[in-house]
Design a protein around this nucleic acid. Sequence first.
DNA 1: TAGATTGTTAATCGATTAACAATC
DNA 2: TAGATTGTTAATCGATTAACAATC
Lengths: 210, 210
Amino acid sequence: MEKEISQAVIRRMPRYYRYLGELLEEGVERISSNDLSNRMQVTASQIRQDLNNFGGFGQQGYGYNVQYLYDEIGKILGLTQTHNIIVMGAGNLGQAITNYVKFERLGFRIIALFDVNPDLKRQNVRGIPIYMMDELDEFVAKNEIDIAALTLPKEKADETAKHLVDLGIHAIWNFAHVDLDLMDRRVVIENVHLSDSLMQLSYNIVKNSK
Amino acid sequence: MEKEISQAVIRRMPRYYRYLGELLEEGVERISSNDLSNRMQVTASQIRQDLNNFGGFGQQGYGYNVQYLYDEIGKILGLTQTHNIIVMGAGNLGQAITNYVKFERLGFRIIALFDVNPDLKRQNVRGIPIYMMDELDEFVAKNEIDIAALTLPKEKADETAKHLVDLGIHAIWNFAHVDLDLMDRRVVIENVHLSDSLMQLSYNIVKNSK
DNA sequence: TAGATTGTTAATCGATTAACAATC
DNA sequence: TAGATTGTTAATCGATTAACAATC
């Protein structure tokens, strides 16, 4: 195994990717760490350090080729392969995520939703079918699933997550308001705790008004 | 102004709040930093350091009173006051956020949505009215708005944000895939970049499978 | 070549952890 | 009082920034 790269660095990579995408749209061919640092409001030093965790993508005296760097970061982030996603919970949030077409451009493809509500049986979201929870095992056996997005009430989140892992799904995008307890298992979890985010905003509002 | 508290600390406060809430539900009356650290998988030292940024909430030999600490963190996070929210963009994500009843328990109250789509005129989400964008100025003038949630395409996000700030709204919960350019203004911004989050997950999947 | 800018090492800064005296 | 556990200072660790030699 190579030397571990810190999550602080990883968290910044999608942001670089986003800015490079914008530069591409603007038709910019090359950029120096200094120019990029001005745009992104980070230090040029940090950009160079971050990138050099993964290799030398630039050239002295020239800077970075935008298209090349964009593609390389895409590779690093695993965007060259398609990721099939199932969404657990077909409520508002589950449906909102499903409708987020934008993800598809990045290679993320939602292929099914699951819910317990019988009213949703045989329904679909933008052509993507909603199944009942008891159809999950068979579906997962027959399809290659890379990620499960969890938009369930917190009471159901933990057991569902464990079940998904047992079915062989090793990546969970967790929207439930709990920290999943799957420590001993080989799973990657990415949390999106919306209410935590809102509370952080609330704190900063109070601070800002002082 | 008091000494600045780092965002790293602030980011952890909602998590403490969440765990203390769970302890309350379990009927636990008091807890030591050590027991809490075991539950939360952080060091006891960090818990004590974090809390002591805001004051001494514990007692030697006893630990922390759960209810008291819960309330105090609630105050710190500004949850004692109600925050009125408007949601810009009544698409799937805007509606999903609006339906997230959970927020209300924390004092966040969504009072209106705004969209450009004339089909949505006079519609509502769970009783909360959808207005047209041209009704925004009047609505903001007549109501006390604390937070605007931005669920717009990135092309519209920046100008809308500027407009909101001009109308006197100084907190933005940004779901658009851009970093808003409002640097010189007195605004607090909390970003929720879902595709960034998904890319981070994707990176960790690749790493995990090695 | 001269100028520009990277890749990388060294210095600084900040955040986390450890330790322990204070005290309930 | 003795035991437990905080609040806080000191030590360590990691992340960011600065500096500069290498090189295109």
